[in-house]
């Protein structure tokens, strides 16, 4: 970062020197007001759909379909939720989503941190070539091989089973890459060296030095993986043929198709599917984004 900054700096400063002088207090105030106004417009646009989802899930279908729309919540929330519970096994779907996302996150955290630790701190034959392969796979979109993946799953006998969602994503290039960077900057070689002198083997070093020092990165990766697994849609849509194993996303899509006549239920279902994730995100946002700024400045 410093390299970039210094090359561009003199020129930029030069340019601003021409502008020297008047820092009118009024202009400063206007700038601040405009800044806050812009931010708040953005915040409202960003959060409004959530409010609207909530408002609609408290209304009857007739209210939702009414024109002009009713902007305020009504009193149908419990009735709508009841409707969802009576018609869709939403708890089973939620449990499945938790199993899939949770296991995915755990496996990714373990396998990725282990591989990242190795790539960051050890030399072994073929390392660079292997790492290059990993980088290329990073750029392949997941939706590319829908058909052959489905055929593969049917040959493995995994069609309709949750492991079809868990196993293929148990280790990924993104996470290894991320943690490798993390590990290179935050795990000092001296510690690993001294562990080696103490007689600790590779896996012990990983477990007792690598893991604690990568903790923050692993937590980030865990939340990240959990959220993307939770929101995955196209693959579960294809592979989960068993009505007993649906994830929240496919259950919700099916609620939307089957009960277009009762939109209050659809909205309540959507609300139920969104809430756990928002809760997890807000709890985890400390790891996720809160200190990106502070960290980046120091780095």
């Amino acid at each position: 970062m410093t390299v970039m900054a210094t090359t561009a700096a003199p020129e930029a400063i030069q340019r601003f020197n021409d502008h020297e002088g008047s820092v009118a207090r009024r202009r400063k105030l206007v700038t601040r007001i405009v800044t806050h106004a812009c931010i708040w417009v953005g915040v409202i646009l960003s959060l409004f759909p959530f409010y609207w989802l909530f408002a609609m899930s408290t209304q009857t279908t007739a209210q939702i379909f009414g024109f002009p729309p009713d902007l305020f919540p009504s009193n149908q929330l419990l009735a709508n939720i009841q409707g969802v519970l009576d018609n869709v096994n939403i708890f089973q779907a939620m449990l499945n989503s938790f199993i899939v996302s949770g296991l995915c996150a755990l496996l990714v955290m373990f396998f990725d941190s282990l591989a990242a630790f190795t790539f960051a701190k050890y030399e072994f034959p073929g390392k660079n070539a292997l790492f290059r392969v990993l980088l290329v796979t990073f750029l392949i979109p997941a939706s590319l091989s829908l058909v052959p993946s489905f055929v593969l799953m049917s040959k493995l006998g995994w069609v309709g089973e949750l492991q079809a969602l868990i196993i293929p994503g148990a280790a990924n290039a993104f996470g290894i890459f991320l943690l490798r960077q993390f590990c290179e900057t935050s795990v000092p070689n001296e510690l690993i060296e001294s562990a080696r002198i103490d007689g600790a083997g590779f896996f012990r070093t990983y477990w007792s030095i690598g893991v604690p020092m990568m903790r923050g990165g692993i937590a980030f990766l865990g939340i990240f993986t959990f959220i993307s697994a939770w929101n995955d849609y196209v693959w579960p849509l294809v592979v989960l043929v068993n009505p007993g194993t649906q994830t929240l996303q496919t259950a919700l899509a099916s609620l939307n198709t089957s009960y277009a006549t009762n939109y209050g239920w659809v909205m309540a279902g959507a609300l139920i599917s969104v809430l756990p994730l928002i809760a997890i995100f807000i709890i985890g946002s400390r790891h996720f984004i809160a200190n990106i700024a502070a960290g980046a400045v120091k780095g």
Binding site: F50, L252, N256, A270
Partner: peptide, 26 residues
């Protein structure tokens, strides 16, 4: 600042199925 960051980031962590339904009605 941290409230704003969370507020701006939240759309990204929400399921697109639910939000497509909401946008469909908006």
């Amino acid at each position: 600042k941290s409230f704003y960051r969370v507020a701006f980031f939240i759309p990204n962590v929400t399921s697109m199925v639910a939000m497509a339904i909401v946008f469909g009605s908006v």
